[in-house]
């Protein structure tokens, strides 16, 4: 994966396949302590202890049509390259929490990518799920909660408009971060 936003999209797809109804994404960028922490928490079907043991194995998948499960193993690969790692906490019928962390200043740290596009795509294509995003950067905070949008009462065009309006704010927030983090 080229960037963090694509990893997030990929891991959230796992939550969707696990029949999660609520998906919470937290992105914490702590410049002072040189760390980015991404947490994705869902209330899906969870993993058994045996599944947890092999969750990072690229040749393990819960999918029926394929023989590889690369999502988590690629995420861990990106994290390890930037002196980070990935932790998984999961309980059957309760849900799963994935936490990935990275060292910001590491030369192999992947870029943040287009986080706003990731949000747009995952929210618009899963109107029956609730998404919450909390992105914190040095005291600044952006929050996004699909509960605001009343997906069931609106058609897709109005829903898209509402999401896009909110994500315009997120784009501005991300511009500030990029400027500050990378001086661009």
């Amino acid at each position: 994966m080229e960037d963090l936003s694509l990893h997030i999209l990929d891991i959230v797809e796992n939550s969707i396949k696990a029949n999660a109804k609520n998906i919470e994404i937290k992105i914490l960028i702590d410049k002072k302590n040189d760390i980015i922490k991404v947490t994705i928490k869902d209330d899906g079907k969870g993993m058994t202890e045996d599944e947890l043991k092999i969750a990072f194995d690229p040749f393990y998948t819960s999918g029926k049509n394929k023989k590889t499960g690369l999502g988590l193993s690629l995420l861990r690969d990106s994290a390890l390259k930037a002196e980070g790692n990935v932790d998984i906490v999961s309980e059957i019928n309760k849900g799963t929490e994935i936490q990935a962390y990275f060292k910001i200043s590491h030369p192999d740290m992947i870029p943040l990518g287009d986080l706003s596009k990731t949000m747009l795509v995952m929210v618009a294509a899963n109107r029956d799920k609730q998404f919450r995003l909390s992105h914190i950067y040095n005291g600044l905070e952006f929050n996004f909660d699909t509960a605001e949008f009343k997906a069931h009462k609106t058609d897709i065009v109005s829903y898209l408009k509402q999401i896009k309006d909110k994500l315009e704010e997120y784009k501005n927030f991300l511009e500030i971060i990029k400027g500050d983090l990378y001086g661009i």
Binding site: L6, L9, K117, L160
Partner: peptide, 29 residues
């Protein structure tokens, strides 16, 4: 949107469809 799809550019394909839906005001998709 499997890992393979995402790595190959599925996010942009979805974003394109969403843009077209908005542009054509196609509410029943």
């Amino acid at each position: 949107m499997g890992t393979c799809g995402i790595a190959a550019g599925a996010r942009n394909i979805m974003a394109t469809f969403l843009n077209e839906i908005e542009m054509h005001n196609a509410k029943d998709i």
